[in-house]
Nucleic acid binder design. Structure first.
Lengths: 210, 210
DNA sequence: AATGAGATTGACCGGAACGGTTAACAGGGG
DNA sequence: CCCCTGTTAACCGTTCCGGTCAATCTCATT
């Protein structure tokens, strides 16, 4: 790719990346026209080809960019160091929402790229896929103190429930487009405090309930 | 559309519909080539055009087919008459899984069609959209007897949690493709019985636990 | 074996759109 | 005045688009 891309004003860089995320997330690799990406970004096709020499290069750039910024943001959020499960979920979710605010279609793009089967790109995608596998909380779960939670609860199922509901919420909003991040933040906190109230042993629940 | 389509052997009909669902769910309306649909269905492009006179007709047929069969299957499952919330969720989920087994890409297609903005079809889609709005359980919730559940629980939040987790699960599986319906059935029952154990008042929980 | 009706296809149409190139333009600084 | 950088319109050959149609192939009925 052309290094000059980086000297573009940030908002223009973002416009181009987002245009790519958008079109590639809506269509197969092969059926995603460069013209459409350029139009969405508000630049001419020629200029797009000036920064990214061909379609494949743009696609793969988007893929690695997406992997890197996601990992970076997740680390920065500190959700991996957190010991409290709910705190960790909260910071993880905050990171996701922050990413979503900057690059609304990046998540969908990642999922789609993950499943892309076009021989022109799928080898490269699968090759660097390990950079994107989620470090799930399975390890974290073993560090939980069962005494903090209501007696007899299946902690693995509890986490599964919370994880799936979070994903379900994200998906539910995403699929209808036009996402309002602030609203999502509120809804998420509401869910979290609901779970705390349900799952935590009495007396522990109020602990974090600002 | 050509009525002869209906006299095709059922499995061939399904192959064609599924091919349509697949391609249209992966691409925008405009970027979905008829050739690709025909290829996926294992027939020639000419034959596809023999049954559906043009692209728009096929697309809109898929849309109404999807709405009708979904409503039919949901009604048939009896999930709307059920008085027990968990029973109702179970039969609703069974209906969804049955549909998913027959038409794996129909759900994704519906979501995408729902958001389609191409002027060639979006008017018609939005016009008949009311056929597809979910009759949510909000009304049902008011009939619940709070005494059946653990004291002090927010029933609306409880339902939201369960609904979102179900959607999240479906989405989680769908996005990675290659869905194993039997496994999904098992996972779902597991989730349901977990919720029963958590949310139902002690003594009520074992009631339905075959 | 010949016939005729449907099912199914390959070859074809004009024109649009593809990925990609290039020559030219705009405009600000020296 | 010219160079430099960012930007684009116009263009390239090629492929693919939605859609048509005449020619097959299939096969039950004579």
């Amino acid at each position: 790719m052309n290094q000059k891309f980086y000297s573009l004003p940030e908002e223009k860089q973002r416009a181009i990346l987002n245009a790519g995320f958008h079109v590639f997330s809506q269509n197969t690799y092969k059926n995603s026209p460069m013209r459409e990406i350029a139009e969405t970004a508000g630049i001419s096709k020629s200029l797009l080809f000036h920064y990214f020499h061909n379609k494949k290069e743009l696609y793969l750039y988007l893929w690695t960019f997406c992997a890197e910024i996601t990992i970076e943001e997740m680390k920065k959020s500190g959700c991996y160091q957190q010991t409290d499960l709910f705190e960790s979920m909260e910071s993880g979710k905050n990171a996701k929402l922050r990413l979503m605010r900057m690059y609304p279609d990046m998540g969908t793009f990642a999922v789609k790229a993950f499943c892309e089967e076009d021989p022109e790109v799928c080898r490269e995608i699968r090759g660097s896929m390990d950079r994107y596998i989620q470090i799930h909380a399975s390890a974290k779960l073993e560090n939980l103190n069962p005494d903090d939670f209501i007696p007899g609860i299946d902690l693995k199922m509890m986490y599964k429930d919370m994880y799936l509901a979070s994903e379900g919420y994200l998906w539910e909003k995403m699929k209808l487009g036009n996402l309002n991040i602030d609203e999502m933040e509120r809804d998420f906190s509401e869910l979290l405090s609901f779970w705390k109230k349900i799952y935590l042993k009495k007396g522990k629940a109020e602990y974090h309930d600002d």
